[in-house]
Design a protein around this nucleic acid. Sequence first.
DNA 1: CATCGAACATGCGAAAACGCATGTATGAAG
DNA 2: CTTCATACATGCGTTTTCGCATGTTCGATG
Lengths: 292, 292
Amino acid sequence: MKISWDDMQTVLAMVRGGSLAAAGVELGLSYTSVARRIHRAEQALGRPLFERRPEGYQATEEAHDIARAAARMEAEEQAVLRRLSGRAQDLQGPLSLTAPPLLIQSFLAPLLAEFTAQNPQVELTVRAANGVLDLARREADLALRISRHPQDTLVGRKLAEQQSGFFAVPEIAERAALDPQAPLDWVLYSGHEAPPAAARKSHPDIRVRARLDDMPSMIAAALAGMGALRMPVFLAHSHPGLVPLPHLPLQPYAPIWLLSHRDLLGSAKLAALKGVLEPWFRDNKHMFSSLP
Amino acid sequence: MKISWDDMQTVLAMVRGGSLAAAGVELGLSYTSVARRIHRAEQALGRPLFERRPEGYQATEEAHDIARAAARMEAEEQAVLRRLSGRAQDLQGPLSLTAPPLLIQSFLAPLLAEFTAQNPQVELTVRAANGVLDLARREADLALRISRHPQDTLVGRKLAEQQSGFFAVPEIAERAALDPQAPLDWVLYSGHEAPPAAARKSHPDIRVRARLDDMPSMIAAALAGMGALRMPVFLAHSHPGLVPLPHLPLQPYAPIWLLSHRDLLGSAKLAALKGVLEPWFRDNKHMFSSLP
DNA sequence: CATCGAACATGCGAAAACGCATGTATGAAG
DNA sequence: CTTCATACATGCGTTTTCGCATGTTCGATG
């Protein structure tokens, strides 16, 4: 009636992943070893933790109980690792940043290049992700997020207000300017029901040609002449092939936040990266608030 | 910047024990392996956790932080093990009981013999200890304690009220009865400042011959004619060589409690042992409340 | 009905972790 | 000053753990 902490972690991974293979990936082990650890834990506890079904392992109530305890243990582990990282005063070792891919591509890349050049000892990992990574679980040390309401438990500051505009290839834009009543093709983001109200008001006859869930693809579609779209103005700076639709004003867009976990506030590496990000955004405010 | 859970446990044992050897004993490992694990953890974290001093390892602040987190993880582990044990419905496997040595020797032994005979599959471990074992850490599943105020977080019931009396070899007892004013030798428990007030009142001229911190030793001293003593009456039943001092009434003594952890209430093994202990005490109340 | 992939069992050689024996340094005790 | 105990370092052979390759079962798919 005892259990090793590593085996508790294995049970947690197994309950989370649902299969030996998935648990193995999470733990960085082969699924064979996961099976052996589960078996060893069952021996030590004197009772089965998983039912061997033809379709795979099925966790018992006991396994779920162990997994819940292990999840709380994992939170302790992550918290102490954060505190240790936060205490590190040397500009050396791993550091991770997550940001929207488009922001990296069109704005951040030169700055990051400079940062890594000036801090060769820092091993910077950039995770280009639109999803929200979990900073508490250390999926990243620092996050750049475009959001109106950034997460509560994190500390952060607003780096830049943003404006969005309406853009299209010059032919479409000129036609729309000449006759606002004429049909106007539109490329819509999948998350939105309809084109923005301001556009619908100026151009009553908007036809949605396609809905896409990926901004680069939407830009490609617009560049191919598929229609007009709404996008934050900073993207217009790197896409001269798209011009603003006349008569349509800029609209507020979600601002850009820089977020990190409290425990990491003392980290020198983090401070260094913040220290270059903040002036970079301050000195280039116009990229986010006005047209090229 | 990562750490295995087993290594966190090793850091905890190291901080607790203060030396590689002590940590090795706690973990059931050789101290060599403890040293290797510490070294591995320091490599993985990229910083030292212990200073190597001539007189041994000295934990850094980082090591203490990890140890604090590991202690909370240990609490989770122990809690889940308790819950698993509490769920066990079979009369089989390990079961541990702690009780004061004197209670076992003079009252409990026959009952425990019968219990193990009737439950051969249960591996009963009896920890004879006067100290208070930690039931939360599963140092024992069930505890018999002589106390006026048993611990809060545990569930328990009072098994017996107790009386104490004053005893000595017959010669001393008779002499004291004939002339209460005469000098009376006394054997005193180290924890007490002076003989009980009731005894001092009846016998003004009490001389403390020795103070001892161990009841069996005190009884041996009394049997050797060193003096009178106070003890719970149940001990008088198994020591006919000591007789009560006349003119002195019985006095209340701390009752006997049966305690266990909430999480273990559902355990069949525990219920079985409780089920024999309770009637055993009920049917033998007189052993604790009246003279032989 | 045949095929394919997902999920797990099993056996074997490689890698990692471990225990033991030996050696060194320090501090306490005679 | 010598002796002894404590605490740790290091090297070596053994045990345990691991990854990979192979085989089996089940269910989905065409």
